[in-house]
Design a binder for these strands. Structure first.
Length: 289
DNA sequence: AGGGGGACCTGTGCGC
DNA sequence: TGCGCACAGGTCCCCC
């Protein structure tokens, strides 16, 4: 489930352990995740130094001093854990509860750094994937070429969203899940943002007027920012890079709250669940129109 | 164009 | 305690 806030939380958690670190030892305990690991995966990483840790959409990018970038997508259940060396401080001390340790049988990739830390990638469902891509060619790679703007970046505004949705009859819910519209939203934060903006998830994208687009952009940004500040969300499988659990799931207004009263003041509505494009949508049918 | 369905893979939570 | 079923954060592909 990692959506943008969770991937960003992982990035921040890994940064102190990985940026500037040399990968002394790399182990791939199986030849594939969702896809086969690239040829020479272990050899190409062993001895390389991580020069920067970035995020694009839901992808983690580990730039290496050899001109390659290790690209990691967490899929639904991917998780990194740091062990060894001194403890890595949580992002917001006091904000986290103790994580449930990941099951060692799903420990697929292990990185040992020159600072004595071990970063282990766990992924029970193996929907995640990794590849090594030339850093200079990242933007042209199929995973990145068609991505929309970062929702927290300057390029994402009501004008952009209006252009992306203009004339579209597809629902705004489905269009926001499309990474070409805006990059990094997933099922949870789309539901939450639409509730905040009081927009029905079945509204055709092209029917949204500028004022509603403006509010939607603002609500997408604020829900993501709040989630990042809370250290992401944790449902069953996900934990932050340092093993701590994010807190934002306690702040969901609609996701997973079918049958509960709408949290909007004086609304009186009840949260509904419906299916759109095969995914559950949670919304209030009283105040989202 | 847009929707539906299924695929990938494993675990969890529920009703019985 | 066990069994079977529904469902899960993402992405891709085929079919109508």
């Amino acid at each position: 489930m990692p959506e943008l806030p969770e991937v960003e939380t992982v990035r921040r958690g890994l940064e102190p352990a990985l940026t500037g670190a040399r990968l002394e030892r790399v182990e791939a305990r199986r030849p594939d995740l969702r896809f086969a690991l690239p040829d020479g995966f272990v050899q190409r990483l062993t001895g390389a130094t991580v020069t920067a840790l970035r995020r694009r959409a839901k992808y983690l990018l580990l730039d290496l001093d050899r001109g390659d970038t290790l690209v990691s997508h967490l899929g639904m259940t991917g998780r990194f854990e740091i062990t060894g060396g001194e403890a890595i401080a949580p992002l917001r001390p006091g904000d986290f509860v103790q994580a449930v340790p990941a099951d060692p049988k799903h420990a697929h990739i292990v990185f040992d750094t020159d600072a004595g830390r071990r970063i282990t990638y766990f992924d029970p469902r193996r929907f995640g994937y990794m590849d090594l891509i030339a850093t200079a060619a990242l933007d042209a790679h199929p995973w990145f070429a068609a991505l929309g703007p970062e929702p927290l970046g300057e390029a994402f505004d009501a004008a952009h969203l209006g252009r992306a949705l203009a004339g579209r009859r597809q629902s705004v819910k489905t269009l926001l899940l499309d990474q070409r519209t805006v990059a990094g939203l997933g099922n949870i934060y789309v539901c939450e943002a639409l509730w905040r903006a009081k927009i029905s998830p079945t509204t055709a994208g092209g029917d949204l007027k500028p004022a509603r687009l403006k509010r939607l952009v603002a609500d997408i940004r604020t829900v993501l920012v709040e989630a990042i500040e809370a250290g992401g969300s944790t449902l069953r499988d996900y934990a932050a890079a340092d093993g701590a659990l994010g807190y934002f799931q306690h702040s969901f207004a609609v996701y997973g709250r079918e049958g509960e009263a709408c949290a909007s003041a004086r609304c009186g509505g009840v949260i509904q669940r419906a299916t759109q494009s095969g995914r559950s949508t949670f919304y209030c049918d009283a105040c989202q129109t």
